[in-house]
Design a protein around this nucleic acid. Structure first.
Lengths: 170, 170
DNA sequence: ACCTGAACACCGTTCAAGT
DNA sequence: ACCTGAACACCGTTCAAGT
């Protein structure tokens, strides 16, 4: 009677991600939140990676890109920055997305959104890599600053600078 | 009498990484390999992340860069490709390095090696991001191909192409 | 079709106690 | 200084059994 579904699982998963971080998005935690047995989850979802993939997809679905303007450089930059912001804004989202992408269990919407306004595949790949890589590295700054630690010698360029370098405008 | 040391731990860790993958580099597994109690490890190492950081550092120490030639584009490309190869050659190395870099627990040698031959910080940051991002995404291809699954719509550009795009040669 | 309960084989970390 | 043993609080996954 709990109307449990794959969609419901990813909702709870995303909520746990936001409030407690990736470490707390466990099968047991999600089950507890839904007040069901852990084993019940496996009826709706293949395994944990598949659940995490659904969480990434739900997160990406919340990003609203709007229609392309026609100027690819503008569109690509705008979309990349929107995605970058989402990855940094949501707790542990960069790590989550990276792993989903690496395992092929989610996050395809990201690549699709970029490919739609990209002039060619190589550029799409480059922006994807930059996005994932820079977001991953940015974590260190946040982490370090939070503890009040020396931050010199770590990633300092903004995503925008790096993106401009790639699209040849600097 | 077992000559256990921080260095020894990272040696065993790297060996486990190569032979069994990241999932098997656990405190308990390393302890078993050394034939000591798990708790003994905590005398030599703060926690698991610190052990993994030491493993990354050991891996990077095995890369031999050679002195700079003077032409930054050549040097930067060469070093980036060497690092890229290392990340792809060693099992789960991309994921491991990404997490160590993100948490600030290891991998600084990577950034140092690139900065040494890079014209400016923004370029260093860009190459770092590309390196981590592209290596992460590349995993999907390997994973997918291993299971004989459709690989279209995934990262297809080589690291070299993407790197050339960044250093403006295409 | 959908869910429970119990079990299996693991985790990281702490800490008193030993030598 | 360095290590053991035991405990604590967790994991993901499977599977017979229930409704």
């Amino acid at each position: 009677m709990s109307t449990m579904s794959r969609d419901e699982l990813s909702r709870v998963g995303l909520q746990l991600l936001n409030t407690h971080g990736l470490a707390d998005v466990s099968m047991r935690r999600v089950a507890k939140e839904l007040d069901v047995a852990v084993s019940a989850l496996y009826w709706h979802v293949k395994d944990k990676q598949s659940l995490l993939g659904a969480v990434v997809d739900r997160l990406l679905a919340s990003v609203d890109f709007g229609p392309p303007s026609g100027a690819w450089r503008t569109d690509l930059t705008a979309r990349a920055e929107q995605l970058y912001e989402t990855l940094l804004t949501t707790r542990d989202a960069a790590e989550l997305a990276a792993s989903a992408l690496a395992l092929g269990t989610g996050g395809e919407a990201m690549r699709r959104a970029l490919a739609e306004v990209s002039p060619n595949d190589t550029t799409t790949d480059a922006v994807m890599a930059l996005l994932i890589g820079h977001a991953t590295l940015h974590q260190q700054r946040l982490q370090a600053q939070a503890i009040g630690v020396d931050v010199s010698g770590t990633t300092s360029a903004t995503f925008r600078q790096v993106l401009d370098l790639l699209t040849k405008r600097v």
